[in-house]
Design a protein around this nucleic acid. Structure first.
Lengths: 343, 343
DNA sequence: TCCAGTGCCGTTATCGCTAACATAGCGCTT
DNA sequence: AAGCGCTATGTTAGCGATAACGGCACTGGA
């Protein structure tokens, strides 16, 4: 639109708006931030000028001067996992009217990448950081400790956090699933999961699961792992493989719902009686499952809720007078679906 | 770790590192940015001090001073669509070694939200913006035009962009699908889609599709729309509804693969011969489809490729001497799958 | 009448860093 | 020995905004 007469391609600053509206830069700043007393008439003048010029404030300068940044760093392992977009959506919803804004970083389950992403984020001096998991490199942990801002580690409570923690106990989730399965009378149990040493939550679930089996005098009779590719397809392939190899298995526990769904489809395609001949269960409670021919047993991970609580802690910290260190453990609920026979 | 003796909770600055290592702030800055000549001995001293203190540079101050920001704004409608995380992953991959970093904003298909997100992003003075779609509010379009940075509008080429454009023609994608269906001998065609007036790409596909039917003297015989909920489940429900209402339909065109997959599962569950009695097709080419009992016909949207090309334009602009305005149209390919009978 | 209180707006001094220029020391040439 | 071109470092002056304070014109109660 209209541009100051000096240099048509110089980026606009407060000064341009100030000159265009005949008041000081300070007053323009006050109007644009809705802070301090300004008369209605000057407010209108300033807003008019700003709009006419197409002025967009420079938050870099603003942040430097005010030592305040309205960003919250969110560090997660992946966006294609479906779980994390849901957590994000909980965070966004909770942050909506706080003036805070989430900024996402993705680590691909690599601790080194996580460290790099965290460093990058902290260099923008955000108001807080939400980060998935309790396991970090020493260096990353040190950065979190010294950042001087609220930190919330999410998803997992099995371990000790730097500051606040919001999540579920994956160990107990696995344990409870094992108990339910045993109670339903299944005795020959196999596990199917991802080949990801850095997915600590999946590992803890499996550990808890084995513990639950052990308590009933049982143990896993077979396992199958995959990495990469279409999870649904992998679920099919792995299910076929494990049942061929160990035909006497009567229950398959999957580390996530996607491969579980693949397994379910394979069983149905091959005329296997579910849950009579074989029972199935996954983990997460993704709403994809609602459309399947049969509802897979699963355990929801309270994803949106985790996001909300974490954001609430970040947003509330300055007001609440809390120094931090809250640990919020949510309770995942077992959804039996149609793939575990009634006890 | 060790902290300067003055005030233990004052955030660290270049000055702290400079004092700790006995050189000027400027030299520290040079070391930390790998810019300019610094002797190996001082470099080591500085890096050692920085590490010992746990210093994290302040990019806010750096960006203000250098007038350079290594961020690229990416504005997309949703993260739960699965399409967009894939585009993002293409962008991230391409930006990987450029020093540039994507920052994501989500609009939920709301033009007003888009405008707000864009304003917020521009206020951080990013090096470029990648934004989904060609349709924006007047105000948003004006901001894009005046931002003075490379802008890439992605996903769609049916219309005119502000600067560069990378995408496919959804109109032609719909048209080609119609041609393929007609060629395969289907004559009674229904459409199932989302109730989203702001999803311009879905709208354009439908328009192109109708155009393709019209060219063969046909028209849509029935339509069904949904919003919200589990797409797979909605696909089932809508398919049941439309086939009950219009039993003589012999082809169902879905606006996305998820509801198409739901429809496919419903047909199989109900013993409907696919593709004999009814043919099905979706849109997108999500890898979920690989695990279905039958492969749904679809058309891939070149998602990763779009992300890569867009990022390439942003990253390359300063070097390439290009002023902008490239339009890159990619060609979606038809994947016939198992749900269209051979012509 | 006087002065504290309030509404409105301007002035000044940073915020933490980097661009641009200045400077010091060195080896080498002439 | 003076002068040149390097390299390695320091000095100065902002970048564009905001915090903190100051000042002026009114108001209203003592």
């Amino acid at each position: 639109m209209t541009r100051p007469p000096t240099d048509p391609r110089r980026p606009l600053t407060l000064r341009d708006v100030s000159e265009a509206s005949g008041v000081s830069e300070m007053t323009v700043s006050r109007v644009l931030r809705n802070r301090g007393d300004v008369s209605d008439s000057t407010r209108e003048k300033v807003l008019g000028a700003a709009k006419a010029l197409g002025y967009v404030p420079n938050k870099i300068a603003g942040a430097l001067a005010s030592q305040r940044v309205n960003l919250v760093g969110v560090i997660i392992p992946s966006l294609s996992n479906l779980v994390f977009p849901e957590v994000l959506s909980g965070i966004s919803a909770e942050l909506e009217d706080t003036g805070l804004q989430p900024v996402v970083g993705v680590t691909n389950y690599s601790p080194q990448k996580e460290e790099a992403v965290l460093y990058e984020m902290l260099s923008w001096r955000p108001s807080g950081v939400i980060i998935a998991g309790l396991e970090h490199t020493d260096s990353a942990r040190a950065m979190l400790e010294n950042a001087g801002i609220p930190i919330v580690e999410i998803m997992d409570v099995d371990g000790s956090g730097v500051d606040s923690v919001v999540g579920i106990s994956h160990r107990r989730a696995g344990l409870h699933m094992a108990e339910a399965i045993v109670a339903a009378g299944y005795r020959h149990i196999g596990f199917l999961g991802t080949k990801m040493p850095e997915d600590h939550r999946a590992r803890k679930r499996l550990e808890g699961f084995k513990e639950g089996l052990a308590a009933a005098g049982l143990q896993l009779e077979d396992e199958e792992f995959y990495s990469g590719g279409s999870a649904l397809l992998k679920g099919r392939e792995m299910t076929e493989a494990i049942l061929k190899r160990s035909p006497n298995l009567d229950f398959l526990y999957y580390s996530n719902d996607m491969i579980g769904a693949g397994g379910l489809l394979w069983c149905l395609d091959n005329g296997i009686d579910v849950p009579g001949r074989v029972g199935l269960a996954g983990f997460n409670g993704v709403d994809l499952l609602d459309g399947l021919p049969r509802r897979l047993a699963t355990m929801d991970a309270c994803r949106r809720e985790i996001g909300r609580k974490a954001a609430e802690i970040i947003a509330g910290r300055p007001h609440s007078g809390l120094i931090g260190g809250e640990v919020i453990e949510l309770e995942p609920t077992l959804q039996r679906g149609d793939t575990i026979r009634s006890a």
